Simulated assay, not measured.
Amino acid sequence: DLDVHLIMDNYGTHKTEKVRAWFAARPRYHVHFTPTSASWINLVERFFALISERWIKRGSHRSTRELEDSIREYLETYNDEPRPFIWRKTADHIIASIARVSERLNNTSNYC
């Protein structure tokens, strides 16, 4: 009976007519898309990639329950000696990147 909120990137396959129809038939599902070039989410995606590369793809899971248990096991192992993801870009670099994108968008809108 609870609503399900899904956070997805802006990849085009999430927006196809077939996918939209699937969600339309399931009103308790709510999709939220991350902003394009949301660099902060890249760290989250990188963490999920590590779980996939180092753990999930190396194992065999016969059920969703086994997969969930396996992910929990990885998280417990990882959290024994956590290593933070380090943000490498400065605020100035990020602001300059946003300015470049904004400039391109402004130039592109002149052609529409």
Rank of each mutant, 00 (worst) to 15 (best):
S70I: 03
E66V: 01
R58P: 03
I95D: 14
I94A: 04
A91M: 12
L67Y: 01
E68Y: 02
Y78S: 09
S97Q: 10
D92F: 01
H93E: 06
S70E: 05
D92H: 02
L75E: 15
G59V: 06
I95S: 11
K89H: 14
R62D: 14
D92Q: 14
L67W: 01
R62I: 11
R88N: 09
N79P: 02
T77W: 13
R83A: 12
R83K: 11
S63C: 03
I95V: 09
K89R: 13
W87T: 05
R88Q: 09
I86E: 13
I94M: 11
F85E: 11
R88T: 12
R83L: 14
I71T: 05
S70A: 15
F85G: 14
T90W: 00
R58H: 10
R88K: 10
R58D: 08
T77H: 14
I71F: 02
N79F: 08
A99Q: 14
W87L: 14
R88I: 14
I71A: 03
E81M: 15
K89V: 12
I94Q: 03
W87P: 00
I98H: 07
S63V: 05
W87M: 11
S97E: 09
T64E: 08
T64D: 06
F85R: 07
L75T: 01
E73M: 05
P84E: 08
F85H: 08
R58I: 05
L67G: 01
R88Y: 04
R88S: 11
E73L: 07
I95G: 03
R100Y: 05
R58L: 05
I94F: 01
T64L: 15
P82D: 04
G59F: 06
S63I: 04
T77I: 12
I86L: 15
D69K: 00
A99E: 15
T64P: 13
T77K: 14
K89Y: 05
I98Y: 05
L67H: 00
Y78A: 15
I94S: 04
A96R: 10
T64F: 15
I94W: 00
S70V: 05
R100Q: 08
R58N: 05
R100D: 08
E76R: 07
D80Q: 12
S60M: 13
R83P: 09
A91K: 13
I86A: 03
R65F: 06
E68K: 03
R62L: 13
W87N: 06
I98L: 10
G59T: 07
H61K: 07
R62F: 10
H93N: 11
E68S: 03
R88M: 13
A99R: 08
I71S: 01
N79T: 04
D69T: 01
R72N: 13
A99G: 09
H61Y: 14
R62M: 12
W87D: 11
R100N: 07
Y74G: 01
H93C: 08
I94R: 07
R72P: 02
S97Y: 02
E66D: 15
T90I: 01
D80P: 01
E76V: 09
